[in-house]
């Protein structure tokens, strides 16, 4: 049996009907068509499903969709604006920080949450913030470079 719930995703409320045992990740991907958040391990190990919930990165594969009601969910689809890509996305591209790209949406969300709380993170702080996101392609170095560069750009852009 389905139940009706309202999810606030990337600033927009969406009223959807889903079975109670669906995770937030399943609701995003299979009901809202937001397939940016990836279904990797589906049990908390990899971070590919990371979304920002009430300002903090959380795992959508271990969040019940009904448990996300009333909370503010942001996914990778909400990063870019009509003006263009988020600096993190642009710097990932410039630095070759994405190879197969499967881990990238989750890493972008962990990094975005970091830069919102801490505009000038040290390399060590970036590593800590991305500790829950596994990448099997890049070896991480370029990802750290990209986040550092994006942080610098965001600082410059601020008044």
């Amino acid at each position: 049996m389905k139940v009706v719930c309202t999810l606030r995703v990337n600033g927009e409320p969406h009223e959807i009907a889903i079975p109670p045992h669906w995770t937030l990740l399943e609701a995003l991907r299979y009901e809202l068509g937001l397939t940016g958040s990836k279904q990797g391990c589906d049990k908390g190990d990899c971070g590919a499903c990371t979304v920002i919930v009430d300002g903090r990165p959380e795992l959508s594969c271990l969040t019940l969709a009904l448990g996300a009601e009333g909370r503010d969910v942001r996914t990778v689809e909400g990063l870019a604006t009509p003006q263009g890509l988020h600096p993190l996305q642009d710097c990932f591209d410039l630095n070759g920080a994405a190879q197969c790209g499967f881990c990238t949406p989750g890493i972008l969300m962990s990094a975005a949450a970091l830069l919102e709380h801490n505009p000038s993170p040290t390399r060590e702080e970036i590593k800590q913030a991305l500790a829950g996101n596994l990448c099997r392609c890049t070896g991480y170095t370029k990802i750290l470079d990209a986040v550092e560069q994006a942080a610098a750009r965001l600082r410059e852009a601020r008044p």
């Binding site: 919930v53 903090r56 990165p57 959380e58 795992l59 962990s110 996101n133």
Partner: peptide, 9 residues
Amino acid sequence: VAGPQIRNM
């Protein structure tokens, strides 16, 4: 405990 996302939850 675990990684950052899980500690947030």
